[in-house]
Amino acid sequence: MQGLSGWIALALVAAVLLAIIYGYNRLVFNRARVAEAWSGIDVQLKRRSSLIPQLVACLKAYMAHERETLEELVSRRGAAQAHERDGAADRAAVETQLTAALLRTFALVENYPQLKADAAFLDLQRNLSEVEEHIQMARRYYNGAVRELNVLVESFPSNLLARAFAFRCATYFTLDDARDGLSPKLEF
């Protein structure tokens, strides 16, 4: 009997060890997926920031009377670049302000019919519209990855492993105002 109970104990220890390894690996995988998803958002946000100087240069020639709006756009871009290394929550607040400044700028473009016909402006407008769509898709993917990680970190029994190995819930990339989630209408 001693031999059989020894094998059963060994099998139980092996099963528990395999369950721990499997749970840990799921946590690691989901943490890596959140990081990868954030990288996708980061790329699109940087891409948007890199288009803004071109947009401002294009707009300056036409919108001489809108200096404050252009200065605000440049200021918001600078703030967004200053927070590039921040986490999702802090970055979302700054990027939301940049999105609002972009929306205000494009609302003013309506007053300049010659600008709306400019080829360089139309190209920038198309690029910014694409970037906004990519940001929205990347945000959805990131938040899905965050949800998966957070479920593992908070649900039993994986929460025991998460606590033991210092896994933490990730922060969603949310918007302060639901209207900011809408892609700006950049087509004229």
Rank of each mutant, 00 (worst) to 15 (best):
Q2A: 12
A32M: 10
V153Q: 08
L161A: 02
A138M: 08
D123Y: 10
A61E: 02
A64P: 03
L149F: 11
A120N: 15
L51V: 05
Q2F: 08
I135F: 07
G87Y: 14
A80E: 10
V153F: 04
L98R: 06
I135P: 04
V56W: 05
G181N: 08
L59H: 03
R163W: 03
A93P: 04
E187D: 11
A11C: 13
I135S: 07
V34R: 01
E154M: 04
P113Q: 06
A93C: 06
I21F: 14
H83D: 07
A145W: 07
G40M: 09
H134D: 13
V34F: 02
E84S: 13
I20E: 02
H83E: 05
A32S: 13
A138I: 04
T69W: 06
R47H: 09
S49R: 02
A145C: 13
E72V: 10
R77Y: 09
P53A: 02
T96I: 12
V74E: 00
N127T: 11
Q2H: 08
E36L: 15
L115D: 00
T99Q: 13
E95S: 07
S50E: 14
D177T: 06
M1R: 03
Q136Y: 08
A82W: 02
S183A: 15
R85F: 04
L70C: 07
D42H: 04
L59G: 02
V43N: 06
R126L: 09
Q54R: 11
